[in-house]
């Protein structure tokens, strides 16, 4: 039998997809499932960040605001009006996309550092807003108290389960859909325009590409998908607090994961989350109790080292190794 490189890669993809889907069947320990969910959650939000942060070539540092908007929209609708979080998820996504466009219109005129700072201010501004508003009319926002979603039994309509396994599959499916959309978009006209606009806006504009329009579309998509993750978060943790869903730490973490992995590549956010999150969990669990601060120190060190030695993120070197591996497989089969 003879396989081409492409076929081998396809087979590997299928194999790993099967494995990922079967993980909950083999691993009964829900603590590990929880870690997988954390990892996939960050893969997802970092991929959504990548629309703007990677392909459009700017540095947004306020994406937690969209998570907060998504989480609050669906939670308020669910807790106060009994509307299923699945509907709320969509509503939150749409509201978030609209806000994304509104905020994107002026911010995309800014460049580099100014864009990053504007998004920080936007993110913090949204958090402070949620912290200070108790009520809008009869709508209870909860202010700094946060909102608890009470557990009322396993239910698909209510997006609640004791077991972690449904959450595992939901975030997995969300991730796959988002990746598929990313791959599709990046191979479309829009993807090329977006990347061209990100790399050299003047040149792209002179070729007649409406850079601003594509950036706005990217922003809307990014905001929409990030907000959906917010709803997932709310139903998964069952408690939202401005400090936890809207924090600047979260905004930074999203960006770091994508950048360490390799921004502007589809695989980057995936690899970034795969490296940083389990590492973070392990160091926090095993070292955090003994020497508080060590785990974050190590994170800082990794950021510095990766940026010095692998400025394009770890995807570059890993992809090379992978391609070499595939090539070898091809030659083995042939001989």
């Amino acid at each position: 039998m003879k396989f081409s490189e492409k076929q081998i890669k396809l087979i590997l993809l299928m194999l790993s997809a099967i494995v990922v889907f079967l993980i909950p069947v083999f691993i009964k320990n829900q603590g590990y499932i929880q870690i997988f969910i954390v990892v996939m959650f960050f893969m997802y939000i970092a991929t959504a960040w990548n629309f703007v942060g990677g392909f459009a070539g700017v540095l947004p540092l306020g994406n937690a605001a969209f998570i907060a908007i998504g989480a609050y929209t669906s939670t308020i609708l669910f807790v106060q009006y009994g509307i299923s979080p699945w509907v709320g998820m969509l509503a939150g996504g749409i509201i978030s996309a609209i806000i994304g466009i509104i905020i994107g219109l002026p911010t995309f005129k800014l460049r580099g550092a100014y864009f990053a700072l504007a998004t920080i201010a936007f993110g913090e501004g949204i958090k402070v807003l949620f912290q200070n508003i108790d009520k809008i009319g009869s709508v209870n926002v909860g202010g700094a108290r946060g909102i608890l979603i009470s557990y009322s039994g396993d239910s698909f309509a209510n997006f609640q389960w004791v077991s972690r396994i449904p959450y595992y599959y939901i975030i997995l499916v969300m991730l796959i859909i988002l990746l598929a959309i990313t791959v599709f978009l990046m191979n479309s006209k829009m993807g090329y325009y977006l990347i061209a606009g990100g790399e050299d806006p003047e040149a792209a504009a002179s070729l007649g590409v409406n850079v601003a329009k594509y950036k706005l579309i990217a922003m809307a998509l990014s905001a929409f998908f990030t907000a959906i993750a917010g709803t997932f978060y709310a139903q998964w943790i069952l408690y939202i607090l401005p400090k936890s869903v809207g924090s600047i730490d979260l905004s930074f973490e999203i960006a770091f994961i994508a950048i360490i992995g390799g921004r502007g590549t589809i695989i980057g956010p995936i690899l970034g989350a795969l490296l940083l999150k389990p590492l973070g969990e392990l160091t926090r669990t095993y070292l955090g109790g003994a020497l508080p601060g060590l785990h974050l120190f190590i994170l800082g060190l990794i950021l510095v080292l990766v940026m010095i030695y692998q400025p394009r993120g770890i995807q570059e070197v890993l992809t090379k190794i992978f391609n070499r591996f595939v090539k070898k497989m091809v030659t083995i089969k042939r001989s």
């Binding site: 070539g57 460049r111 508080p292 800082g300």
Partner: peptide
């Protein structure tokens, strides 16, 4: 040096953030 030709150098921002985490947590330890 490695980002000299990059139009939007953000690697440096990340490095300074890494330094921030390192210094803060060094002080904590």
């Amino acid at each position: 040096e490695s980002e000299k030709d990059v139009r939007e150098p953000i690697g440096v921002i990340i490095v300074t953030t890494g330094i921030w985490y390192m210094l803060d947590n060094l002080a904590l330890m």
